[in-house]
Design a protein around this nucleic acid. Structure first.
Lengths: 228, 228
DNA sequence: ACTATACGATACTGTGGAGTTCCGGATCTT
DNA sequence: AAGATCCGGAACTCCACAGTATCGTATAGT
C-alpha cells in the first residue's frame, strides 16, 4: 500500500486489504500495456499542485499538465479527483527520516538539533502545505485525516518519541515525562506557524523552539548549549 | 472595525484607514433605509457556514438561507463572497475572554485551569473550525492570515501571556521564560488536534496539556495539583 | 499484418455556483 | 400621494471545472 494502486480501489484501499489478489478473472491482457512508471509521476504532480493551490483550487488539467500527461491517462487510473488525491496522500513517501538510523549524539538537544537539516526543513514545509491543501477535504472524508496525519506529522512525532525515550533510558530526563504529548510540541507549533501564521520555518525558529519550549518541558532547563 | 462595514470597503479595510470619512458626496438619502441590524446576522450566518463546510464549500445561497435573507440583500452589502468572508472574520467578536478580568487564583496552574469552561471550549472549537474553513483562502489573501490569527488564536495567546507574566512577577516561574513561545503551546496543540487529528477538545485534554506540557515547560514540574 | 489497448491532445457535455436582474411588497423622504 | 430604495424570493446568465469521448499515434500480443 505504499505503492500506487494498480486498480481503482483508492477509496477502499484505506480500509480494505485487497480482496482481488490474483483471482481477478482472466486478465486477457491484450494491446499496449499501461506504463506504470507514470503513476508516481502523476501522484507527485498531484501533491505539488495540492500544496500550491489546495484541493478545491486543483484541477485535473493542472495535474495532467504538470505530469506531462493527458487527462484521459489520469482518469484511466483513478476514478475521480478525490480518489487521485487520496491515493497520492496514501502513497506519499515518508521523506528522509528513517527510524532505523536517527542521530545519536548522546544528548537530547544534540539529537534534536541534528535533525534540523535544510532538506528536512524544506520537506517538512511542503508536507505541511499539502496538509493545508487537504484541509477542506478532511471534513468530508474523515478517514483521510488519519491517513494524512500518518503520512505527514506522525513520522516526525515518532522520531521525537524515539529520541525522548532514549533520553529517558540514559537517565537524561525524567521517566515521568508525557512523551506522547511532548513529541507533538514541535510538529504542532511548526504547523501553526506554516498553516496559520503563513511564516516560513527556518533553522533559527526550530532551534528556539527546542531551547525555549521542548527542552524546558522535559526538564532540561538551562543546559550549556554548544554553538548552533 | 469591530462593527460591520457600512460600505463595501471590506478588502481595503484591512490596510486602509478609511479615506472617505464624511466627504462622501451628498448622500441624498432617499427611499427605504437599509436595515443594518441584518448585517451581523448575515455575518454570523457566514461564519457558521464557514465553520461547517469551509470557504469553497460555502455558497451565498447557504448564507442567505441561514440568515433568512435574500441573495440580493447579501450582494447589496458585500461586493463578493470573498469580501463577505473577510468582513465576517474581521468583525468576529473576540468571544468571552476579556483581558481586563482574567482569573487570578494565585497560581499559574489555577489560572490556566480556571480558564477552561464549557462555553470557552465550545467557542474555541468553533473558532478553530472557522480557521480551518479559511485555510484555502489564506494562500490567496495573505493579509487575511493576519486578521484571522488576530481574531482566533491571538486572544488566547494574549491571555496566556498575561497569566504567565503575572506568574513571573510574583516569582512563581523564572523570568527567563520565553513567554512569547510558551503562550502558543496550548493554542497550537489544540489547533493541531481539532484541524488535523479531527478529535474533539475536552476538559481532560486541556488539563493534561497544562500538566504534561505547559507547566513543565515553565519549570513547574510536579507541583501538588488540587483535584480538577 | 491484425487487433486491442495505452498514450497525449483536444473537443465536448453537464452541473453547480457566483453574480445579476426582476418581482411584489414594505418603508422611507418630500 | 409619488418616487426611490429597501426587503425576501426566484429566475436568469455566465463560466469554470469534473468527467467523457474522440483523434492520430505508439506499443503490446497473436
Amino acid at each position: 500500500m505504499t505503492q500506487p494502486n494498480l486498480t481503482d480501489d483508492s477509496l477502499a484501499s484505506l480500509a480494505d486489504a485487497s480482496l482481488t489478489d490474483e483471482a481477478a478473472e482472466q486478465p486477457a491482457k491484450l494491446g499496449r500495456k499501461r506504463d506504470h512508471t507514470r503513476d508516481p509521476e502523476i501522484l507527485d504532480a498531484a501533491l505539488e499542485v495540492l500544496a500550491e493551490v489546495g484541493y478545491d483550487g486543483m484541477t485535473i488539467d493542472m495535474v495532467a499538465a504538470r505530469a506531462k500527461a493527458g487527462k484521459a491517462t489520469v482518469y484511466r487510473r483513478w476514478a475521480s479527483k478525490a480518489e487521485l488525491v487520496i491515493d497520492a496522500v496514501a502513497c506519499m513517501k515518508k521523506g528522509d527520516l528513517d527510524p532505523t538510523h536517527l542521530p545519536d549524539t548522546g544528548t537530547l538537544r544534540g539529537d534534536l538539533v541534528s535533525m534540523i537539516k535544510p532538506h528536512s526543513i524544506e520537506d517538512g514545509e511542503k508536507k505541511l502545505q499539502i496538509m493545508g491543501g487537504l484541509m477542506s477535504m478532511l471534513s468530508r472524508a474523515p478517514e483521510l485525516a488519519e491517513a494524512a496525519n500518518a503520512a505527514i506529522v506522525e513520522p516526525r512525532a515518532a522520531a521525537n518519541r524515539i529520541l525522548m525515550q532514549r533520553a529517558i533510558d540514559r537517565g537524561e530526563i525524567s521517566a515521568g515525562c508525557d512523551i506522547a504529548a511532548l513529541s507533538l510540541i514541535a510538529p504542532s507549533m511548526a504547523a501553526y506557524r506554516v498553516l496559520i501564521l503563513r511564516t516560513p520555518v527556518d533553522r533559527q525558529f526550530l532551534i528556539s523552539l527546542i531551547d525555549g519550549v521542548v527542552l524546558p518541558a522535559v526538564g532540561l532547563g538551562n543546559q550549556p548549549k554548544d554553538a548552533a
